[in-house]
Design a protein around this nucleic acid. Sequence first.
DNA 1: GCCGTCACG
DNA 2: GACGTACGTGACGGCG
Length: 943
Amino acid sequence: MADTAATPDTDIPPPAEPGQSHLFLVDGSGYIFRAYHALPPMTRPDGVPVNAVFGFSNMLVKLIDDMDADHMAVIFDASRFSFRNDIYPQYKAQRPDAPEDLVPQFPLIREATRAFNAPCIEMDGFEADDIIATYARQAVEKGWRVTIVSSDKDLMQLVRDGIDMFDPMKNVAIGPDQVMEKFGVAPNKVIDVQALAGDSVDNVPGVPGIGIKTAAQLIDEYGDLETLLERAGEIKQPKRRENLIEHAELARISKQLVTLKDDVDVPEPLGDLVVRGIDSDKILAFLREQNFKRLIARFESEAGQAAGETAATAAVSAPTGEEADYALVTTLEGLHGWIAAAEAQGTVAFDTETTSLNAMRAELVGVSLALAPGKACYIPLRHVGTAAQGELLAAPSSGDGPEQIPFDDAIAALKGLFENPAVLKVAHNAKYDCLVLSRPANGGIAVAPIDDTMCASYVLEGGLHGHGLDELSLLHFEHRNIKFEEVCGKGKSQIGFAEVPLDKARDYAAEDADMTWRLHQVLRPRLVEEHMTTVYETLERPLIPVLVDMERNGIRVDPKILNDMSADFAKRMVEREGEIHDLAGEPFNVASPKQLGEILFDKMGLAGGKKGKTGAYGTGADVLEGLAAQGIELAEKVLDYRQIAKLKSTYTDALVDDINPETRRVHTSYSMTGAATGRLSSNDPNLQNIPIRTEEGRKIRTAFVAEPGNLLLSVDYSQIELRLVADIAGLETMRAAFREGIDIHAQTASEVFGVPLGEMTSEIRRKAKAINFGIIYGISGFGLARQLGTPQGEAQQYINAYFERFPGIRDYMDEMKKRAHEWGFVETRFGRKVHINAIREKNPAMRNFGERAAINAPIQGTAADIIKRAMVRLPVALEKANSKARMLLQVHDELLFEVPEGDVEATAALVKEVMEGAAAPVLNLSVPLVADAGWGESWATAH
DNA sequence: GCCGTCACG
DNA sequence: GACGTACGTGACGGCG
């Protein structure tokens, strides 16, 4: 949604010829609904919802900025009934009423249109689309260019020479190519396709059994709808033929419904739709009423008014560099002043500036502090002299660098503040700043206590949007932060933050601390109001210092093992490549799916279909395995090549480069807010996807080793997600099986297929296992069939049998879907909310996707909550037991420790106990949680 | 920068 | 009745 507010690169339609008039027709009604669903909820101070108004205003500003229109109009639907209801009463009849918080925005958007001095057009009895069609026709007849601002597919029939469309949400032009992509036919045939395919949303009936794909194919073959209907008898498929003959009249009515009327007696003559200039007073009055600060600031500065005049009336003033007046602190006295103020009030927001996004490699360059909205400072610590802009060839340093407090003095003072238990330190992504500051080279500061606005946002609005500071500033304050690239440049000419001139560094750094402060003001109280305090305080906040320690610990990786493997892989890749080229009869890039597809399917003529989007052949492992099973040696060789190439590039080669030169260990970074379900994710490098499933890949794990005298201890939950399913859905026999320690998949197979445990075969057990997994993912007949390689009908029968045997599962699934639809989110057993955006999609495929996510999220998320609880308790438990064990890694259901040899057994027992008890006392599960421990010299032998 | 592919739970 | 499918991630090479 950040895109709608302002996007620098806009794929605007081509401009008009010199001297040619250009008319913009904005589909106001269409835009309202799209903006409403695309943008998160947003209210002005008096509580009136304004997210669609905000999106609309930004869109208009952009249009006026970027486009060369001399004529324009914004067009609305006057009411929900039009002449089409006389033709077909059910047309658009089953449309639900507009959402409650959208209704008050309709009049506001018309008001916005008038405030921007744009003509606002609507007519009883006609839809906006008809008025647009009429103006477009009139304009083209006069030789004008027309751009329709909408992404509504119903308007695509109008695209032709002189008329194009522009999608204001995605910022892309829609021309004949895009129409062809959507409907499979040229714009002038779109109505024929729509007439056949119908539209369930608008209640256009169409012909039963025919969708867009089939319709396009038919129109392509027969030329147009009438010809097709006349010659319907020639159609080969019996069902389709019958339907076309029987429902020919329905198709003709549908065509009438979808055909836009382009001769409406429009209320304003075309010539009156001229673009009039902006009236600043008018527009500012409107924007102030909505409290759109960024837009206000913009029009104020355009009008030459004194900035800040309205700041007093705004709830939170907009901190642009000029008006916020951030301080640069370059004396120790100055710093002491800020620290004293922070200690006096007990809360301070801060941010660190460094040389790297990788906290284990970052050198501290400066720190910013904020004490109140707009009141912030920057303390440069390691800035160096820099060439003035444009003097790239000048010496980079003019001697001793800019004036700043000596590093050790400043750090000593800041350490007092950051370690002061009476002062709450607020940061955005505090894990990063804490880790940077904790390293001896950066002061060795143990920051506490801390609050993290990123985690707070995640807990409140996880799944709705990202949680970066820039995104949240825009979302909550309509404020656009200075971009890092604006300060440091990008690409080759990018400079380090230490080289940024102090005034620019101050504006950038202080702004981040300032916005963090403001976010904290907004989000903290919401945690209480929205009952998310427990999740934040027990699952996220205490995890931060735990993860800081884990990331700093890192894990030892033996580069020699990886280098040897890499050399071996390189040799084998060359061999495979040669064999593949011989088999293909020509050299080509084996790593290119495109070239491989052409060899396999064009040159060799093997069976295999094109893929929808890009038109490229699919050459995934499943396809190649199919070919290999048919005895195609080439496919087998490519699979082998792919496996080796993956292992080499992603693991053996890359991991060596990730060894930190200082610690000689590999330090991953965990993202606490990346996964919507509550899971962590690991990156730079990702240590949560180190190979294990194949023999070859597993060898990578031999390179992950313990320090001499230590062992790696791995403890992982056994079947935690399935146990949670059994508990949540009340599956009594499954619960009993878990309690008695029976093989759960065999037990399931026995229940579902009626085979006694004594007669169980591995094949039947395999099927049951796949179903058990499928349940967790929101099963579908198609998905299970693909997994098992059985026909879809058979897979569906398995599912039916499963539901029959375990009715609680179906109830659970229905309940989660219902909640997701009603509330927009589902919850884990610990109360974590997982918002499901896709649930509001009108595209059924996307909505189904949302429903499956809603089924999976409480299961995956509850498991994530449980291991987080264990991770918070473990350092305390280990400490209490005087253990020297260090927690190194988390892989969703596994924890990896480095333990002195002699302590392994005791530590394993302790870890197992904490993990198995992690759901209690909040949750009293009806199934036991079981964790299995293993240890060895390397991760390969520990597992 | 997007897409296809593939590594993990 | 059609959509196009198992859930959640991150990283790589190819390609335009």
